[in-house]
Amino acid sequence: MDVPIQYYGLLSALLFSMGVAGVLLRRNIIIVFMSIELMFNAANLLFVAFARHQNGLDGQVFVFFVMTVAAAEVAVGLALVMALFRSKQTTDVDDASTLKG
């Protein structure tokens, strides 16, 4: 219990911000995906840190759920990437802009 909780918070915030930056700035859809995973990871880290901080287990259970959802999301997301690539021959998110109003 030597490491102050704030340090974990700081680390988590930095990782999260990197994830955000990746989503906002990178154009490759797989990188974008990984950035999202990075954000999940940052959140998970904070969960576990707080669980430890509060001497509880619920945070860990939560992480478990987050991971499951992330796994599901990756499965579907990568399938979407495949579908996108198949129809547009690209992995660039900017090329998929049919939602344009």
Binding site: V69, A71, A72, E73, A75, V76, L78, A79, L80, A83
Partner: peptide, 17 residues
């Protein structure tokens, strides 16, 4: 609920791919 979610994701991934 999560288990069902996983199942759906699996089916969805198969269908999409």
């Amino acid at each position: 609920a999560t288990s069902i979610l996983l199942l759906i994701a699996m089916v969805g991934a198969v269908v999409l791919a």
